[in-house]
């Protein structure tokens, strides 16, 4: 830093000065610090994987891959398997994705395709954002005291009249899959809607004008031009929404009933990986903690794969429309 090339070039009367040695020193230090912090997030992910992995190691070596196929979770007999939880996680998330996905995409269309005046659209967008801001436990509480009592007569009627359909083969006695999936759908709706809105807004306006110019009705333009053009972005929205649903914890722990069984019925209690962690962790014994860490790894891998897929599709969409990077 002593070889400052500008030092002797500076005029003695000038208000400006070349960077001092201290400036150079601070600059390189600060840059290194920022670079370290950028690396830190990668290190954090690696550390998370490593730490949970090493804590789970005893359980992984003890139960092996059979853990994923086992159907009992019994801390007193040291018997652990997460198949019912995987089933419950996927089942509730897929149901939520179907409901929340359809509603989210519809709301994205509603917000972007000139159904509303600018002002009303702003208000409606605020409603969707507020939906995302409400904490998970509050949805759980609402589910217990509003949604479940509301669903119970409907479920009872469906059960008595259509109990030959496996979906309605049990009655809703309290918490169960249906209220959990509905609340989950509400919770992923804002994610799906926000990313779909981005995808729809990215379509150049002339594409729609061209469609209208051909004499399409509004919905023909939406269904045959706008949605296919935005399809990859909407797919990304759905995949990322699905990832959210897989990892959601508290509302499900409160609503799904935490029962380790595999049942097709919408009204039977079930369990998910995340709510298994939430409900069993605080009182778990040593080996059970290891098994829970193993379950956490299963959950981590599941959401990781889904999220990376969603991000890759989103990246692809951005490239397709912006033609760069």
């Amino acid at each position: 830093m002593s070889a400052n090339p500008f030092k002797d070039k500076a005029s003695p009367h000038s208000a400006s000065a070349p960077p001092s040695a201290a400036d150079y020193w601070a600059d390189s230090l600060f840059r290194k610090l920022a670079m370290t912090c950028a690396g830190l997030i990668i290190a954090l992910l690696a550390y998370i994987l490593l730490e949970i992995g090493s804590q789970a190691m005893p359980a992984i070596s003890e139960y092996g891959i059979g853990f994923v196929g086992g159907t009992t979770w019994d801390g007193s007999r040291d018997e652990f398997g997460v198949l019912p939880e995987i089933w419950g996680t996927l089942y509730s998330s897929i149901l939520a994705l179907i409901i929340g996905g359809i509603m989210g995409v519809t709301i994205a269309i509603f917000l972007t395709q000139e159904f509303l005046s600018q002002k009303v659209a702003t208000v409606f967008r605020l409603i969707v954002e507020l939906l995302a801001a409400i904490p998970s436990v509050v949805y759980g509480l609402w589910g217990i005291y509003v949604l479940i009592p509301m669903l119970r007569p409907v479920a009872g009627w469906l059960h008595t009249h259509f109990d030959f359909i496996p979906l309605f083969s049990t009655d809703l006695s309290g918490p169960g899959l249906a209220p959990a999936a509905l609340v989950l759908a509400i919770m992923i709706l804002p994610t799906v809607a926000a990313i779909s809105v981005d995808a729809l807004k990215r379509i150049p306006y002339k594409v729609k004008e061209a469609a209208y110019g051909m004499g399409t009705t509004r919905w023909e333009a939406i269904l045959k031009v706008m949605l296919p053009t935005a399809s990859s972005g909407i797919l990304a929205a759905l995949v990322l929404g699905f990832g959210r649903a897989l990892g959601e914890t508290m509302a499900l722990a409160m609503l799904i009933g935490n029962s380790n069984q595999i049942n097709l019925s919408l009204f039977a209690p079930a369990n998910t990986l995340a709510s298994l962690l939430a409900s069993s962790f605080p009182e778990a014994g040593d080996l059970e903690i290891r098994a829970l860490m193993y379950a956490a790894i299963v959950l981590l891998l599941l959401t990781f794969v889904v999220n990376v897929m969603g991000l890759a599709i989103q990246q692809y969409t951005m490239r397709k429309f912006e033609g760069k990077k």
Partner: peptide, 28 residues
């Protein structure tokens, strides 16, 4: 390369199940 890697990791972590942050902190 570092920037695109950390950007990607950050995006992945936004979809990270929040309970796993608890599991991780429990472990460390």
């Amino acid at each position: 390369k570092l920037a695109s890697a950390s950007r990607f990791v950050a995006k992945t972590l936004t979809g990270f199940p929040s309970i796993l942050a608890g599991v991780f902190t429990y472990a460390i």
